[in-house]
């Protein structure tokens, strides 16, 4: 009888190892989105309209400004016209001051970029969706309408929370 149990456990272990190997061999692009919640991703800041990365574009400037604020370590930025989506992660020990940091980011961005409207969030879901949108834009062949729809979806998700 114990032999039977051992066989079942052995079979499960082998399945688990195969699953791990299969996950490890996956597409690297997908891996970035897959580990966005637990690892630092640092995605390039993009614009929904242009889709090509510009080193001195507004999204990149916004990203640099936000990343410079104390307690923030991973920033994802996507721009759509005047609206700029800013999602970031807060250091674990500073998570008690989330509200204060969000206020700081908002006032800092409003002061620095007066003509733009910012959607700021430290929620993991918003960050994950922003990284997904970012990867969508990096793929280039995605229609712009689809990317804009995704942007609006994230915006409504953020509004739902407040």
């Amino acid at each position: 009888m114990p032999g039977k149990h051992f066989k079942a456990v052995y079979f499960l272990l082998i399945q688990f190892v195969i699953l791990l190997v299969a996950a490890g061999c996956g597409n690297e692009e997908r891996m970035k989105e897959g580990t966005a919640l637990i690892q630092q991703t640092d995605p390039p800041a993009l614009d929904v309209r242009s889709t090509t990365y510009q080193k001195d574009g507004l999204p990149e400037k916004v990203k640099k400004e936000v990343a410079g604020i104390d307690g923030i370590y991973d920033v994802a930025v996507v721009q759509n016209g005047k609206k700029v989506l800013v999602a970031y992660k807060v250091n674990h020990m500073r998570r008690f001051q989330m509200k204060k940091i969000e206020k700081e980011v908002n006032t800092h961005l409003k002061k620095r970029f007066k003509d733009n409207e910012f959607i700021v969030s430290s929620d993991y879901k918003i960050f994950l969706e922003t990284v997904r949108l970012n990867e969508m834009l990096m793929d280039q062949d995605v229609p712009k309408e689809k990317a804009k729809k995704k942007f609006k979806d994230i915006e409504s998700l953020q509004k739902e929370m407040t």
Partner: peptide, 15 residues
């Protein structure tokens, strides 16, 4: 919680 955030439409607050 991460499973719900990742695969469903839950935010950190609602998950």
């Amino acid at each position: 919680m991460y499973f719900y955030i990742y695969f469903f439409n839950f935010t950190e607050q609602t998950a």
